[in-house]
Design a protein around this nucleic acid. Structure first.
Lengths: 133, 133, 133, 133
DNA sequence: GTGGTCTAGACCACC
DNA sequence: GTGGTCTAGACCACT
């Protein structure tokens, strides 16, 4: 699992860690029943204080995304996939909405907007394709 | 002209002011030949030091977006509209690209992505329509 | 590096500092790749505020005479020598033109003018020669 | 007689007025025995306080360039032409010397310097010629 | 240590 | 009234 935490980002580090875990669950990188890396492991990997990781885990526990089995570790909870997918979709929609709203506020013609979206998606597909081959 | 400057945003205040002015020119809120509010006026409106505004204007002057006539004021330059529209388009494309990239990275199906974009645009149109009537 | 800034000269101090640096590059006193004295050092040497030096450096940066590497220092850029020589030549020509123009306006005979120029150049050569030996 | 006094030049206005009169005598624009315009006339023409003109005249009197005949006016003195020519030559030589010195200090090759001087003199001649015809 | 930016307040120049 | 520049001192970011 890769960790890229920006200590001065708009979100505090603990939220970034929680978000990273939710994203991993949503994209099935880790599945319900899997055990997360240990708090200390995550802390060293993410260049972050273990307390920060603990806070993130507590948050996810409260959201029923993970459950900690004392003496064993932290595991992805049963309904976690749906919860995280819903969260991820909300995130993406929010970001998209902001970008589109800004474009509209800037007086951009809708046709142009759609052309750009098309171009960007096409470019991403091509980049993907090249990577795979 | 409305000013909302975040003193601790990712961009320094002077850049935020420059961006706000570019956006205003791009959206024809102010047109070539118009006089900008005075440096001191902008400073008080934006809750910012006059020096900070001056720096923004210096930048815009060297981009040929404005020209200052000493003792008279700062005016939107002749070719400014094109320059600012180009800048705005770049900004929007960058934001869109980031949002789409994130969506892709999160493993979102493209069909779903397009559905959302459609919904968001439709909702904006409706909101617009309601405003006008 | 010697600094003699006149706070009330016809040029503002920041321009005088920029000119001094350009001259130093043109005369190879400092060469491309060299690091300039730190902004604060120049400021104390030239009896001027660091902000004033910073403004001069900003100007030189946009003229591609220097490039600043954040946290490291300000360095003479690669093409700087040519840029500065061209600037210096323009300066000298302008001064010469003014002096000759004044001489002409004063009704001085051209023969006399050339004699003086000859004398002055000869005297300079002699002074140089004496210095070297 | 034309007056162009810069109230904020490097020389104080009274010195500028004295210099203008010396130059007029040196170039024979006015000759020994001629009466100068009245102090008040000069003052209005030069946009300057009469006291300032009076101070200039006093200076010239001390240099034996003019002599005031009470109740009659101020007249160009007998030896004035030589005095003023000498003064003018000194001025021109000084300015030339400074310009040449700067050029040398800047490391300019002497050949280049002479080429420029030649070009400038030639251009002035052409401009003169065009004016006359 | 380096530069970059900001604030605060002053002075000058232009109109 | 307008901008432009300077000084003074503080904070941040990068190395």
């Amino acid at each position: 699992m890769k960790w890229t935490i920006d200590p001065k980002g708009s979100l505090p580090p603990s939220d970034q860690i929680a978000a990273r875990i939710r994203a991993a669950v949503a994209s099935a990188e880790i599945a319900p029943g899997d055990r997360l890396p240990s708090v200390r492991q995550i802390a060293t990997d993410a260049l972050v204080n273990p307390n920060t990781v603990a806070r993130a885990i507590r948050q996810l526990e409260w959201e029923h995304v993970v459950e900690t089995r004392p003496g064993d570790g932290v595991f992805v909870a049963n309904g976690a996939a749906d919860i995280c997918k819903q969260w991820r979709d909300g995130e993406i929609r929010t970001r998209l909405a902001r970008a589109l709203e800004d474009a509209r506020a800037a007086g951009l013609a809708q046709g142009q907007l759609l052309v750009w979206i098309g171009e960007l998606i096409r470019d991403q597909e091509e980049a993907d394709f090249r990577k795979q081959s």
